[in-house]
Design a protein around this nucleic acid. Structure first.
Lengths: 175, 175, 175, 175
DNA sequence: TATGAATGAGACTTCATTCAT
DNA sequence: CATGAATGAAGTCTCATTCAT
């Protein structure tokens, strides 16, 4: 990956996350990256290819984040880590952008990356089982749904105080 | 509102909800509405004006839905009604479209229609207070967040079984 | 067909015939037609659509020309008319352009519009039969081939004197 | 001429002949030649230079083919050789490509390589004179024209059976 | 000699919007 | 009120060509 390729990716990530995929023109990306527009197409074939490249990078990042959660042996710790996921994310602007993009893309293209969640879901079910919850699968589903809502608010609602909700959740789940 | 105006609104609502605002051209709207493209501009000034008109209609609908919830005197009943909100919605394709559009717009334009939620939030806090929950505001917030997540999954996830989660929630809140 | 549509067709015909299909940009066409570039796409969908429209017009013209030949009952007269085909064509600049375009397209897209020639071929075979030639089909084929060569030279060779060859041919076929 | 230069020429010849000059990008040529795009420009200055080089090579080939015809002392034999020209050509894919290219170029750039034909024309006139034809020059012209048509059909018409026409011609000219 | 990243002009196309009818 | 022809700006993409390595 050359320096300019990275500049393109960075610029595109920012813009796609800020303004959405459709609303971001390749010329805007090129301008922000300080690069000729043609170069985008040389490296990524077309606008979709650029998006794919970014999404793939995001998936790598997500994998790393998720791995730490999924592989946690202690069930309480696992749930805590999952609940605190966005705290980790919110400390890194690029990570925020990746998540923003993931969600924006979901809505723009109506794809709910279900398979990515399977691992987390399995781990949560397992954790709730270990903790002797009565309906582990439904508890897992509920928490996943809740986190979707949390992400929505975290990204869209300016004054949303995430930490308060997270603390409350940890209390609820006693983690 | 003339017949053609309504046709335009209906067509635009469908298309905006299906494909997003940016991705829907005014010519597509005109075609689906069976109307000349110029007419859209005569009635709604520009594409944004069309969107505004639709959003306003959506708000009217939402108000009606919300009123029934907010004005419910029995706290348990109120919470139940709120939790079952999407069951009502899911029975009417036009209502689904309105909600889909609301969410798509949120994400495309990064506007989280906070004020619309204030009334519901107040009502929920009040209900949780009456039911002697320890942290009524945080409970309200949590439920609101959860419903955002539920909406996300309901709209985006093909095989998502909403009713199961709703039953589980009602059990949790004993409503 | 509106006035501007006709202007587009005329301009495109000239340019495609002069410079070839690929080498003619839609913006050139628009400029020569005195029309906005977008209008081309409104009326003809895309550049190929414009070409198709022109080709279709050319086919109409060709049909008219060919009908007069094919329907000729007198075999000598039929052959004479066919041989003199290009004299007719050469009197009308638009007709010349159509033929030029037909041939250019043949070479650019490697399509030899065989079916168009079937009627002429049949008529020629018939004529040669009536005139008791020994190999009517081969005679017809030869004459068709010769006319392809004549067209090539007529269009490409600046100083080619068509009339001389035509006279010589008429003499050969005693028509 | 280095090995890579030859690869470029071969690739370009194929592509120009198949798809035309304008429609073939230098990057396609580079890809088919298995060579970097820049190398084309180092060796041939620009795309036109590449075309020139190919045309020059084609002329060399043509000269060799034509020499054998032009230098033939026996007039009947000369005419026969000329008529059978394409049989020789059709046995060698590269030769076919050269001819295809020659014709495509003619049409794309509207150049009728007249001077190349002068030698053949002179030889044919001479042959027809020796054979006591009444109008040797016109006979020569006719045969040249016919061969243009034959080439057209040979290259463009999929199911054209050249040999049949050639046999018929040889019969006609008693060669 | 050879590569391949990089450019900039220009290609085709879409689209919101205007306007004469 | 309604149409649909027309526009112009902007969008995605291609391509010949240059240049540092």
């Amino acid at each position: 990956m050359t320096e300019k390729q990275e500049k393109i990716i960075t610029a595109a990530l920012e813009l796609f996350a800020e303004e959405g995929y459709r609303s971001t023109s390749t010329s805007k990306v090129a301008k922000r990256a300080g690069v000729s527009e043609g170069l985008i197409f040389r490296h990524f074939t077309n606008k979709d290819g650029l998006l794919d490249a970014i999404i793939k990078m995001g998936e790598e990042q997500a994998k790393a984040l998720f791995a730490d959660i999924v592989l946690e042996p202690d069930p309480k710790e696992l749930i805590r880590k999952y609940i605190e996921l966005f705290i980790t994310v919110s400390k890194d602007q690029e990570a925020i952008n990746f998540w923003k993009l993931q969600f924006k893309i979901k809505w723009e293209l109506e794809i709910y990356g279900e398979h990515k969640m399977e691992a987390i879901k399995g781990a949560l079910i397992n954790a709730f089982e270990k903790l002797r919850y009565n309906h582990p699968e439904q508890e897992a589903n509920l928490l996943l749904t809740l986190m979707d809502g949390l992400a929505t608010r975290f990204i869209l609602q300016q004054q949303f105080d995430m930490s308060e909700t997270i603390e409350f959740l940890k209390q609820k789940y006693k983690v």
